[in-house]
């Protein structure tokens, strides 16, 4: 028996918005530790990893591991029936072929009860190696969303360059080129801060497809800040924390010199 109750139902709604355009369906693995889902887009350029730890839920029970094979378009349609301040409960039997979704309105005068049919998805899971990142950058998530949108007007590639105390985003194309530089902000307390941590002082610069970066920023509403981790000849990691007990992470393979 699996049952998980999420007081902040909007978390699930927002997470689906950040997933459904990249991964059409996925196995949501439920265990006593929480719920995790991992999947790649059809062209295997980006890997999306969702982690919802058990203490994100105010009630969580998972007697035996349960796999929920979900079609994300369907899941998203059902979640659209939930109000942002609804409590959402997920329930499934052991070896389930369906999942029960319960939405309770904040003032408890409306409950919606949905059954979603599960599908068998044989999806390979990738092992994510520990990596020493050359640079870890934190920027306001709305700022990152705006930069990706603005630069993708210039071309299909965005170059992210990090050097001491500064991160630069640039794009070039037929119409011209653009470069946006963010300096590490002094006032480290507020959310508007930009922080740039370098492993060594060697600057690093990688090229990425702007289309995918714009897919990732669909998750912007999950967190005020987004963390970018870069390492030469490695995938970029774009992470949105979900409170203190979850995250939606994207790994994007770089464009490399032929």
């Amino acid at each position: 028996m699996f049952e998980a109750r999420l007081l902040q139902g909007s978390i699930l709604k927002k997470a689906l918005e950040g997933i459904r355009e990249l991964i059409t369906s996925g196995n949501w693995e439920c265990s006593s530790a929480g719920i995790s889902m991992q999947g790649m887009d059809p062209s295997h350029v980006a890997l999306t990893v969702l982690m919802l730890q058990n203490d994100l839920f105010d009630q969580f029970r998972c007697d035996r591991n349960v796999t929920l094979g979900l079609n994300h378009a369907t899941f998203s349609k059902i979640l659209k029936c939930a109000a942002n301040d609804d409590i959402i409960t997920l329930k499934a039997e052991d070896q389930p072929d369906e999942c029960n979704l319960l939405f309770q309105s904040a003032n408890d005068d409306k409950t919606s009860d949905f059954i979603i049919k599960l599908t068998d998805i044989d999806q390979e899971t990738l092992g994510i190696p520990d990596t020493e990142y050359a640079a870890t950058v934190k920027v306001p998530s709305v700022e990152f969303q705006r930069i990706c949108r603005d630069l993708s007007q210039f071309g299909d590639t965005i170059i992210i360059s990090v050097k001491k105390g500064c991160v630069e985003f640039s794009g070039t194309g037929e119409i011209g080129s653009a470069k946006i530089a963010l300096k590490e902000s002094g006032n480290v307390d507020d959310d508007e801060k930009v922080s740039v941590e370098m492993d060594k002082d060697t600057p690093c610069s990688l090229s990425f497809a702007s289309r995918y970066l714009n897919y990732f920023t669909k998750a912007t509403s999950l967190s005020d800040t987004v963390t970018l981790q870069l390492c030469p000849e490695h995938p970029l990691v774009v992470s949105y924390d979900i409170g203190d007990n979850g995250s939606l992470k994207y790994y994007l393979a770089p464009k490399i010199e032929e």
Binding site: L126, I256, E257, E258
Partner: peptide, 14 residues
């Protein structure tokens, strides 16, 4: 010229 690499060339199947 830059080519798009694939995630599967960085992370192996677990």
């Amino acid at each position: 010229k830059q080519v798009q690499s694939k995630m599967t060339s960085f992370f192996g199947v677990a």
